[in-house]
Design a protein around this nucleic acid. Sequence first.
DNA 1: CTTGGAATGTCAACAAGGCTGACGTATTAT
DNA 2: ATAATACGTCAGCCTTGTTGACATTCCAAG
Lengths: 169, 169
Amino acid sequence: MAEAVSPQGGQDLLFLTDEQLRKGIEAMFFAYRGFTADPDRILAQKDYGRAHHRAVHFIHRSPGTTVNNLLAILGVTKQSLNRVLRTLISDGLVEVRVGREDKRERHLFLTQAGAALERELSDAQRDRMRTAYRAAGPVAVAGFRQVLEAMMDEDMRRHFQALRDRGPQ
Amino acid sequence: MAEAVSPQGGQDLLFLTDEQLRKGIEAMFFAYRGFTADPDRILAQKDYGRAHHRAVHFIHRSPGTTVNNLLAILGVTKQSLNRVLRTLISDGLVEVRVGREDKRERHLFLTQAGAALERELSDAQRDRMRTAYRAAGPVAVAGFRQVLEAMMDEDMRRHFQALRDRGPQ
DNA sequence: CTTGGAATGTCAACAAGGCTGACGTATTAT
DNA sequence: ATAATACGTCAGCCTTGTTGACATTCCAAG
């Protein structure tokens, strides 16, 4: 009653004030820094960058994916991706196989060394995620995922859901 | 029983599988792209970048903040920040006032033009946030914020909480 | 069989925005 | 007086994004 909460819906709408939204924005900013911090440290030692991590991650997720496919998921230009792929290939972390049906396509796979790097990076990232999940609890995690999914662009949501629904490997 | 769920705690631990954690990681990746997409479009038209957005945002949040303070929040070098601040100052978006108590310090403020840009950017970003919040609902939003906070580095969490608890302005 | 378009690779040039290192200058603290 | 702090700046480097142009290879349609 003393609170500025309208009888119907007031409490439910409180989380939509500019103030609440701003908190969410700042939380996203600070959290993303934490999210990338651990892999970044590992990558720096190996003379790789975030771009390499992303490529390796999604090749691991979708072995045999084509360059075009990866381009769409990563949302960068082919020149940008190519620079990264070139180093990964010449360093023996990624293997390229010319398409059997369509020989224009290049299918990308991780080598053993590539898979090892992927594991090292995602282990570090998962550790932080696990700690955060454990601290927040399952209900919070469900909400977390819901909000993130609602925040994506339409295109990205499609990519995300495709990966999500395909399950492991 | 057919499921690999242990009697006690099994259900609660299900959200900590590598698979679930991976989904969270990918959700963070795709969502962050959406999170920055709208401001990025506005900034591109005005020949500014994300770095300018961040500076303007936190100067708006803490008017009169010092350079050192901003440095700590943004987590970049002074050279990096200085490049951005220089353009904002010469473009008349940020005003610098020499400290009264300690004349070594420079206190940063947004001009009217600076405040206008800040509003344009944060309106765009809040719109997306609001849509996501509304779609997910208040319980999800609470969880979202909890997980993000748990994901931050210790230093960043301190900065976040300081801003959070100071409330509006 | 030719030809258009798709998928890919590659070269060059450029910009934003990180970084390090070094140096200068007030100003404050010891 | 001297040291430390806060800041600015110059120079140079790296990663990762961008455009634009052009070659190749191959599929598919005419």
